[in-house]
Simulated scan of single mutants.
Amino acid sequence: MQKSKKMLPLVAAMLMAVSGFVKAQDVQERKPVVMGQVNLTFYVASAAVVREVLERLGHNLTVVEGNHREIYAKLGNQEVDMLVASWLPHAHGPLQAPIADQLVEAATLYEDARLYWSVPAHVPVSAVRTIDDLKKPDVHARMEKDIVGVGPGSGLMVGSTAIMQQYGLEAAGYTLRVAPPQDWAKKLADASGSGKWIVMPLWQPQYLNAVYPVRVLEDPRGIFGTDRAVVVVRKETWNALPEHTRKVLSRVHLGIPAVTELERQIVVDGKEPQRVAREWMETNAQTVSAWFED
């Protein structure tokens, strides 16, 4: 009996060693996962957390960036295995529709994802409350006519184009164009500092909401809808993932305030995205721990 008791630690150690070998072998044999992300920093912020989760689960990841059209094309062509994240059903619905039957909705990172047109908070609400108000003579005389957005083919630009047409803003002399993110952000920074009146196509989560006071314009025609940000994975990739990975990934949820703050640290504080993700996960250890439970 005494001899059996002495053998227990040895047997346990052997079992742990075998288990460790199996897990290591399993990790080694796993196919690398190619993660797609749109090249705007709020997507980078969300993707950094998802990447950290998958790497902690032993997956090797390659990250591929591009604009909206490029990433959805790569997803359809099997050049990327997953996308972090698709705004559904409105903003990215048309881009995802042709390949929707090839995808699994793996996780919802945040709800209440919204696109909208806004103005700096110094623009009086009594003058400009709705998008229609941009055509009022006194507003038209003062408002800058050059409206700048970001992301070729993005839901923001597709919806903004519809706004221009349906509200008759082109006929009123307004123009809409795509600019690099830094030029788009600088336009709001300059207006906030100078008191200039501009229209700012914007969304949430977006770090600019935390840096500059802005006010959302009412959209009586309801051009933009409310979405949820979904991690979508190709079905064959999803089915090949270990069950525990699928469970953990399905639990990942961040929320609008968290993504806004993550992006603010990346853009304003100049922190490396994976560092920001790790620090957020450490600060929110109880939440993250629940994701990984068996």
Rank of each mutant, 00 (worst) to 15 (best):
residue 3 K to M: 03
residue 6 K to R: 13
residue 7 M to V: 13
residue 9 P to E: 07
residue 12 A to C: 12
residue 13 A to V: 14
residue 16 M to A: 13
residue 18 V to Y: 11
residue 18 V to T: 15
residue 19 S to L: 15
residue 19 S to K: 03
residue 20 G to T: 13
residue 23 K to V: 14
residue 25 Q to Y: 05
residue 26 D to M: 12
residue 30 R to I: 05
residue 32 P to A: 10
residue 33 V to W: 01
residue 34 V to Q: 06
residue 45 A to H: 02
residue 51 R to W: 02
residue 52 E to R: 10
residue 57 L to N: 00
residue 58 G to V: 09
residue 60 N to V: 14
residue 61 L to F: 07
residue 63 V to G: 01
residue 64 V to G: 09
residue 65 E to M: 10
residue 68 H to T: 08
residue 70 E to M: 09
residue 71 I to P: 01
residue 72 Y to P: 00
residue 77 N to I: 05
residue 78 Q to D: 14
residue 78 Q to V: 07
residue 80 V to A: 07
residue 82 M to W: 03
residue 83 L to Q: 13
residue 84 V to R: 00
residue 84 V to P: 03
residue 85 A to N: 08
residue 86 S to R: 02
residue 89 P to L: 08
residue 90 H to N: 15
residue 95 L to W: 02
residue 97 A to G: 09
residue 98 P to W: 09
residue 98 P to V: 13
residue 98 P to E: 12
residue 99 I to K: 00
residue 100 A to R: 10
residue 101 D to E: 15
residue 104 V to T: 11
residue 107 A to N: 00
residue 114 R to M: 06
residue 114 R to L: 05
residue 114 R to H: 06
residue 115 L to R: 05
residue 116 Y to G: 02
residue 116 Y to N: 02
residue 117 W to L: 15
residue 117 W to F: 15
residue 117 W to V: 11
residue 118 S to I: 11
residue 118 S to G: 15
residue 121 A to C: 08
residue 127 A to G: 06
residue 129 R to W: 12
residue 133 D to Q: 11
residue 139 V to C: 04
residue 140 H to P: 05
residue 144 E to G: 03
residue 145 K to M: 08
residue 146 D to C: 05
residue 146 D to M: 09
residue 148 V to N: 00
residue 155 G to H: 08
residue 165 Q to E: 14
residue 168 G to M: 14
residue 170 E to Q: 14
residue 172 A to C: 02
residue 178 V to R: 04
residue 179 A to K: 08
residue 184 W to Q: 05
residue 186 K to N: 09
residue 188 L to A: 11
residue 189 A to F: 00
residue 194 S to R: 07
residue 195 G to N: 03
residue 197 W to D: 03
residue 198 I to T: 07
residue 201 P to V: 12
residue 202 L to V: 06
residue 204 Q to K: 10
residue 209 N to R: 10
residue 210 A to N: 10
residue 210 A to H: 01
residue 211 V to H: 06
residue 215 R to I: 02
residue 217 L to W: 08
residue 217 L to I: 05
residue 217 L to T: 04
residue 220 P to S: 09
residue 223 I to H: 04
residue 225 G to N: 11
residue 227 D to P: 10
residue 228 R to K: 14
residue 228 R to A: 12
residue 228 R to P: 02
residue 229 A to R: 04
residue 236 E to V: 12
residue 236 E to N: 15
residue 236 E to F: 11
residue 238 W to I: 05
residue 238 W to D: 09
residue 239 N to F: 08
residue 240 A to K: 04
residue 240 A to H: 06
residue 242 P to S: 10
residue 243 E to A: 15
residue 248 V to A: 06
residue 248 V to M: 00
residue 250 S to K: 04
residue 252 V to W: 01
residue 256 I to V: 15
residue 256 I to E: 08
residue 257 P to K: 08
residue 260 T to A: 10
residue 262 L to Q: 02
residue 268 V to G: 01
residue 271 K to E: 10
residue 271 K to S: 03
residue 275 R to S: 13
residue 275 R to E: 15
residue 276 V to D: 00
residue 278 R to Q: 14
residue 279 E to R: 07
residue 280 W to H: 04
residue 282 E to H: 07
residue 283 T to V: 13
residue 283 T to A: 14
residue 284 N to L: 09
residue 290 A to N: 10
